[in-house]
């Protein structure tokens, strides 16, 4: 159970950072050819922030709060690296995360 929760926390952390990054024009353009609308960017930021928060909550279920928060902080670092390197080498993978956003032009 603990392992499942930690795995979910990790996935959410990666998703969270990916959405936060996609809210930025530079990274959106690595994934899609159009522009995100202001409201889309906002939704992405909320989604991203929410995922990171839920990830923390999941961590808190797995261990003593001091240990759990430390795990989460270190997960943030690892996920940010994963997201950055995915944007470098396989940016199109992230198009799945914005598949619900209609093309604007």
């Amino acid at each position: 159970m603990v392992n499942v929760l930690l795995a979910a926390a990790t996935v959410l952390c990666v998703l969270g950072f990916a959405w936060l990054a996609l809210a930025m024009d530079v990274h959106w353009k690595q994934v899609r050819n159009d522009q995100p609308s202001a409201s889309t960017a906002k939704v992405l930021r909320v989604l991203g922030g929410l995922s990171l928060f839920v990830s923390l909550v999941l961590c808190l279920f797995t261990a003593h709060a001091t240990m759990a928060s430390l795990v989460w902080v270190m997960l943030l670092a690892a996920s940010a690296l994963i997201v950055a390197f995915t944007f470098t080498w396989r940016p199109r993978l992230f198009s799945l995360l914005v598949i619900w956003v209609k093309a604007t032009n």
Binding site: M67, V71, M74, A77, A78, L81
Partner: peptide
Amino acid sequence: HFRHWMLRWLYVLGGLA
């Protein structure tokens, strides 16, 4: 001194970073 293998590996990652 804790028992948490994932956190250990994350520490390794931090150190290598």
